[in-house]
Design a protein around this nucleic acid. Structure first.
Lengths: 236, 236
DNA sequence: TTAATAATAATTGTATACAATTACACAAAA
DNA sequence: TTTTGTGTAATTGTATACAATTATTATTAA
C-alpha cells in the first residue's frame, strides 16, 4: 500500500520530486548506478514506495542534465561516459571558471579574501599530508565560494551541472595522484595571491590554466579505467 | 471531451510533451506570454485539449531552462527580464561562441568554407538592403553552422539555451539599428576570412568581440524598452 | 534448426481522481 | 475603517487506471 504523501513533513512544495532527483543523481555520481545501466520508472517507484508521477519528473530533470539518456524506444539508461565528453566539459568549464573568478576578483571584500585564504591554507595542509580527498573537498569549497562572490547566477548554474558530471568521472580515477594534488594546491595559492592583488586578468588566466591541468590528470585516470573495463569485458 | 492521444500520428514517443514545450516556449519568446505573466497548468490543458500530465512535464523543462520561474508558493510565471541577466548571458555566450568557432576552424573542410562564404554574402546583401530581420536570420544560420562543424555537443547545447533567452530579449528591441547591422555584417566577413586562413586564435578573438558588440546594441534597446514600460506603468 | 509470426508481458505515455496547499471573498470583531 | 478569522474556490502535487508502444516468449512454417 502506498501512503498518500510520504514527504509531507517537509515545508516546501513538491519535495518528493526533489528527493528522488537528488537520490538518483547521487547514485549515478557514486557509480551505484553504472554507465549504460537501464533505469525503470516502475522499479524506482516500488523501491521508494511512491508513485511514478514524481519519479518521471525527477528522471526528466536528470535527462535534461544529461546524466540520464533516453533511447529512441523511450527507455532510459544512465548516460555512458567517454573521454571526448570529459574534454568538452573541461573546455567549457575552464572558460566559465575563469569568467567567474575574474568577476569575483572585482567584487571580493576583505572578509571574502580572509575566507579564501583559509581555504588555500586548508588545501595546502591537506596536500602536504597527502590527503587527496581533502584537497579535492576544500578545492571544491574554494571554487564554490568564488561562484558565490561573483554573483553570476547564469554561469554558476552551468558550472554546477558540469561539476556533477565531473564528480562522476572523478570516481573513476582512484589513482591517488599526490603529485597532482601538490601542484593543485600551489595553483590555488597563486590564484589567491592574484585575487589579493585585485588583478582580474591574471586570476582569469591562472584559473583557466588550473582547470586545464586538472583535465590532463583526469584524462589519465579515466583512460586507465576504460582500459581496465575493456580488459574485464574481454575476460568475462 | 478529451481524446486519448491527439498527437499519436507522430512517429516518435511522447510528442505531446514536446509539442507543448515548443508551443509555450514560442509564446514566451514572441512575447505572447509576457514577462511575469502567471501560468496555469489547467488553463493550458483546457486550451490545448490535453491532460495536465504532459503539460507539467513541458513546463518543468521550461522551468529548468529558466524561461519560467517557480514562485515559493508553487505557482509558475514567465521569467522576468533584467539588464543584469542579459549581460550575464552575453558574457557566457561570448566565451562559448569563441570556443566553438575556434574548434570549427580546425575541423572545417572545403565544403564547409563554401557554405560559410554563402552565409557571409547573404548577410552582407541583407545589410546593404537594410533588411535587419535577414541580417539576424542569416547571422543565426551562420552561427548554427559553426556549432555543427565544431561537434562540441556540450557547448552547443548551452549556446542554444542562451540563444532562446536572447531571442526573447531581441524582440524588445524594435529599433531598426542599421548601423549595427552593417557592422555585424562586416564582423561576420572578418570571421569568415580568418576561418579560411585557418587561424583559430584569431577566429576566437574576433567571435568574442563580435558577441560583445552585439551585447552593447542589445542593452541600448532593452534600456529603452524598460524605460518605456516604466513610463506606461506610471501613466496606467 | 532457423526464420517468421503471433501471443503475451513489460514499459512508457496520458488521463483522471483525489489530496494538499494556497488564494480569495466575505463576515465578524476591534 | 481596518483587521482578523473562516469558509470556499482555485491551483498544484500525487496516485492510479488505462492506452500505446516495445520487448519477449511461444508457436508455427520453412
Amino acid at each position: 500500500m502506498i501512503m498518500k504523501n510520504p514527504f509531507q513533513h517537509a515545508n516546501r512544495r513538491s519535495s518528493t520530486k526533489d528527493f528522488v532527483y537528488f537520490e538518483i543523481k547521487q547514485r549515478i555520481i557514486e557509480g551505484i548506478l553504472e554507465p549504460n545501466e537501464s533505469i525503470s520508472e516502475e522499479n524506482i517507484a516500488t523501491e521508494l514506495n511512491i508513485s511514478r508521477t514524481p519519479i518521471r519528473e525527477a528522471l526528466q530533470r536528470l535527462e535534461i542534465e544529461e546524466l540520464i539518456t533516453r533511447l529512441p524506444n523511450g527507455r532510459l539508461q544512465v548516460s555512458p561516459i567517454s573521454i571526448r565528453e570529459v574534454e568538452e566539459i573541461y573546455n567549457v568549464r575552464s572558460l566559465l571558471e575563469g569568467l567567474v573568478a575574474r568577476e569575483a576578483t572585482l567584487k571580493a571584500n576583505e572578509n571574502d579574501l580572509k575566507k579564501l585564504n583559509q581555504f588555500t591554507q586548508l588545501i595546502l595542509e591537506a596536500s602536504e599530508n597527502d590527503i587527496r580527498d581533502d584537497v579535492v573537498f576544500y578545492g571544491n569549497e574554494m571554487h564554490s565560494y568564488l561562484y558565490q562572490i561573483s554573483g553570476n547566477k547564469n554561469a554558476v548554474k552551468i558550472l554546477n551541472q558540469l561539476n556533477d558530471h565531473i564528480s562522476r568521472y572523478r570516481r573513476l580515477g582512484p589513482t591517488k595522484n599526490n603529485e597532482r594534488s601538490k601542484k593543485a594546491a600551489q595553483e590555488h595559492m597563486e590564484i589567491y595571491e592574484a585575487l589579493v592583488k585585485k588583478d582580474p586578468e591574471k586570476v582569469e588566466m591562472l584559473m583557466r590554466a588550473h582547470i586545464h591541468n586538472s583535465l590532463e590528470a583526469a584524462i589519465d585516470s579515466i583512460k586507465k579505467h576504460l582500459q581496465k573495463s575493456i580488459e574485464l569485458e574481454g575476460n568475462g
